[in-house]
Write a protein that binds this DNA or RNA. Structure first.
Lengths: 232, 232
DNA sequence: GACCAACTTTGACCGCGGTCAAGGAAGCGG
DNA sequence: CCGCTTCCTTGACCGCGGTCAAAGTTGGTC
């Protein structure tokens, strides 16, 4: 197996590296190491020392915190091309777990910081992404603090649909996609229990808003009604 | 009245400007304009065009979103030296409101972006602050999604105490401070109702955890017990 | 197919916190 | 001091969603 090179990278133009040209990418190429994670495997632990960061190449990761009671709350999902970790921080803020088999391009944190300092365009891109992530996180606070279980789940389905199935099909046609999370995962993301998630999904199906052809599969039948519910 | 100059600024070393030396500060000095806000006055409206950003010099601001139902959720508090606005974004993500009379140092957004580009140290500082704000926002998601009313209010009191009264007194001695928010504000911050906030505070007082000598005043009598409640 | 583990659904019950309503306390201008 | 507004407290009630418990499904292995 030949060493992977950045020019072949699946996320070459979408990750932070998109800010660099092929020549500049050479330094990162020498710095980065590919790493695969199995489903359920963890890349970092909240509170632990961490001296790496990474680009996510494929798969989906979760960011979680846990209360002292032991219950985990998913505070963010990471998709391919997203950046993992926090430069200039010596310990990880959140636990990073692979939901599905994932591949990362891992950098030593300090080396990555040096690359950032040498390439303002890349640092700028990271800043813009961080600002966007902050806005998204704050937006989700509204849902978590106020939204009913119904509103949270309706919004979640639309989010996933937009990301997973948004590319396929004409508007108006039912969209079908696979959920990246099982019921327990949805519950941890939305601050609910497994039972409530299950009940609301079943009711959505009874009411003709969605179909649930398989455990992980969802077909959106009435996105407008879901959007109305999501708005509370 | 003489034009205010940066070297006199109350937050000279704590705001983003702290990354610049006195000479570099000249450019910002010409760019910035002081602006006062009365309590309740708004600086930006969520969704509206916005071509300014600012440093907060004094007072406290809230960031809010509102659901379609009209109820506002406070997603963040801004204190003196904090940065307001989002460079490279043409519309405001959140409504910015002064809780108390406030003073801002306002910059045209595009001019500020140019200063950022010219002074990497300042852009770096903004990036680090944004990363920290993101971590804080995600941390608050746990509280909002899972915490009981009791836990949220206990945590809120400790947060405010740490910021407002942390400087005074030896550990172990009761700390007294003024809440920056009225009951309605606390409710909007914590995702609760006025009545619930009032009831829990009253119960905390009955149980000897705090004293409430005036509407806005709080004395923390048993911080350890509050911390235990906040942890859930 | 038989078996088993993991996941999901469904039901019964109940407590927390929201809602509605009324009454008190503080601040303020006359 | 009065009257008014705003803010806060307290009470009664109830619905949503959590908890506990028990089936029912799915998928994988032998």
């Amino acid at each position: 197996m030949t060493a992977p090179v950045c020019s072949d990278c699946a996320v070459r133009d979408r990750a932070l590296c998109g800010a660099l040209d092929d020549v500049q990418l050479g330094a990162l190429n020498r710095l980065g190491r590919r790493r695969r994670l199995a489903a359920g495997e963890r890349f970092a632990w909240a509170g632990d020392e961490s001296d790496v960061c990474a680009n996510l190449l494929s798969g989906i990761l979760t960011l979680t915190t846990s209360s002292l009671g032991g219950e985990e709350q998913i505070v963010g999902l990471l998709y391919p091309a997203d950046f993992v970790g926090r430069p200039w921080a010596t310990r990880a803020d959140f636990t990073v777990t692979a939901l599905a088999p994932a591949e990362l391009c891992v950098f030593p944190r300090e080396g990555f910081e040096r690359v950032l300092a040498e390439h303002p365009a890349m640092e700028r891109l990271l800043l813009e992404r961080t600002l966007a992530a902050l806005t998204e996180a704050r937006g989700r606070m509204l849902t978590l603090a106020r939204g009913s279980a119904e509103a949270r789940i309706a919004g979640f389905l639309l989010d996933i649909a937009a990301r997973a199935g948004g590319c396929s099909g004409a508007p108006g046609l039912p969209v079908t996609f696979d959920l990246p999370l099982d019921r327990a995962g949805i519950a941890r993301l939305l601050g609910l229990t497994i039972e409530t998630v299950s009940r609301r999904l079943t009711r959505f199906e009874r009411d003709g808003l969605v179909r649930l052809p398989a455990r992980r599969a969802v077909t959106i039948l009435d996105p407008d009604a879901l959007a109305r519910l999501a708005a509370g």
